[in-house]
C-alpha cells in the first residue's frame, strides 16, 4: 500500500523556525509596507518558518501598524496558514475531487479524532501535524495521504490507526 513517489511540493522540513532577527530581516525587505502586503508577508514568513509564530504575527503587526487580532482574523480566514510548527511527521490529506469522491472527508474526521487535533494543528507531543491540501496529484491512489513525502493510497478509515502506529513505532525505535 505504501508508495514512494517523488513530489516537489514536499520539501518542507519539520521543526524549522525563524528567530526574531530573521523575521525582522524579512520585514526589512519591505520598509514602507502597507496593509495590502499583509498576505504576501504572512506567506513569506510561513514559507521560511513553516508556520506563523506569535512573535512573527506581533512583529508583522508592528511593521504594518495592524492589530494582531486583525492579522489573526485575516490569516484564519484563509486555509493556507498555520500557527503551530509542523510536527515531526507532517500529514497532508488530499481533499481534491477524486479523493473527495472516494471518501477523504471521513479520513479527515477520523484523523482529527485519532490525533485529537484539527487540520492546521500539531499534536501536543509534536509528533504529528495535519494539513488539508487541494489535489496533490496522486489521483490514481485516491483517497490518499502523504506523510513526510511517503504516500499512502487507496485508504479506508480502518487503515489510519495502523499507519499512525507505524510512525509512532519508528519513533520509539529511534529513541531506544
Amino acid at each position: 500500500m505504501m508508495n514512494e513517489q517523488p513530489q516537489e511540493t514536499i520539501s518542507r522540513q519539520p521543526g524549522q523556525s525563524l528567530n526574531h532577527d530573521n523575521i525582522q530581516a524579512v520585514l526589512a525587505k519591505y520598509p514602507n509596507a502597507q496593509r495590502e502586503l499583509l498576505i504576501p508577508l504572512l506567506q513569506e514568513v510561513q514559507e521560511q518558518q513553516g508556520y506563523l509564530s506569535k512573535d512573527a504575527v506581533i512583529q508583522i503587526g508592528k511593521h504594518l501598524k495592524l492589530p494582531t487580532s486583525k492579522i489573526y482574523g485575516v490569516a484564519t480566514f484563509y486555509n493556507q496558514f498555520r500557527f503551530q510548527s509542523i510536527g515531526k511527521y507532517h500529514i497532508m490529506l488530499c481533499r481534491g475531487t477524486a479523493c473527495h469522491v472516494k471518501g477523504s472527508f471521513s479520513l479527515l474526521n477520523t484523523l482529527q479524532r485519532l490525533l485529537k487535533i484539527e487540520a492546521g494543528q500539531t499534536t501536543r507531543d509534536g509528533l504529528f501535524s495535519l494539513e488539508v491540501v487541494a489535489c496533490i496529484g496522486a489521483c490514481g491512489l485516491a483517497p490518499v495521504i502523504c506523510v513526510n513525502g511517503e504516500f499512502h493510497g487507496n485508504l479506508t478509515v480502518d487503515d489510519l490507526p495502523k499507519i499512525l502506529n507505524q510512525y509512532r513505532n519508528k519513533e520509539k525505535k529511534g529513541d531506544a
Binding site: P67, S69, K70, Y72, G73, T76, F77
Partner: peptide, 8 residues
C-alpha cells in the same frame, strides 16, 4: 481592536 472575527 482587542477582538476581531476569526475563521469563516
Amino acid at each position: 481592536s482587542a477582538v476581531d472575527f476569526i475563521r469563516r
